[in-house]
Amino acid sequence: MIEVDSLTKQFGTKTAVDHLSFAVNKGEVLGFLGPNGAGKSTTMRMITGFFPPTSGDAKVCGISIVDHPAEAKTKIGYLPESAPLYRDMTVIGFLRFCAAIRGLSGSAKKAAVERAIETCSLGTVAAQSIDTLSKGYRHRTCLAQALLHDPEVLILDEPTDGLDPNQKHEVRQLIKRLGQTKAILFSTHILEEVEAACTRAVIVDRGVIVADGTPAQLIAQSGSGSLTDLFRTVTSRDTEFAR
């Protein structure tokens, strides 16, 4: 469903993503791990068509994001890192706007908005202005926007960031449930999440993949039975300073 082929992004002389290739199939939840600045968000922004890649291509359901961006984008639901929202709108107004942009109208739009509100438990705040919501609700509103058009591919950039433990658990359960019928790529810093929600994980560092496998394989690879140890050995700690 997602095929990333030798994707590269350079900002000036700096290479943020370096010939990255991987694939995510239907029914798979791929955890995208790596230290800050490893190129996770940049990769996701390229797959979703926000950044044009310097070279390489990403195919979503077989459609190239470089050659047919508009068509490929209809297949993707995307939750950006900071969960950006139009704060002057109400939750339901925002979701209706997103549904309209996705080409839904009439009863299909109404049903899609209702389903997204239900899936993300936003019923109690639906009529509230986004400005007045807590971070957890704002995050879920943005997640609801990604689910509106029932996309085949979900790309979630740190979907549990800034949520409380209960909300984290709910989002993980949701990812797991949705992952049965979709291809999901999500990035995270939290290594327990990999075991809790992923069927497979890759670790990227400085724009290249340094480890790839099922959570069990990765744990075995670490030698000590801890993902954290593996993470610390395969990634460089000076990334932040080098960039």
Binding site: T48, A70, S82, P84, I101, G103, Q145
Partner: peptide, 14 residues
Amino acid sequence: RNGTIELLGTFPLS
């Protein structure tokens, strides 16, 4: 500033 440009940029609209 709000980052909503990322939403617009990934919606299927030119």
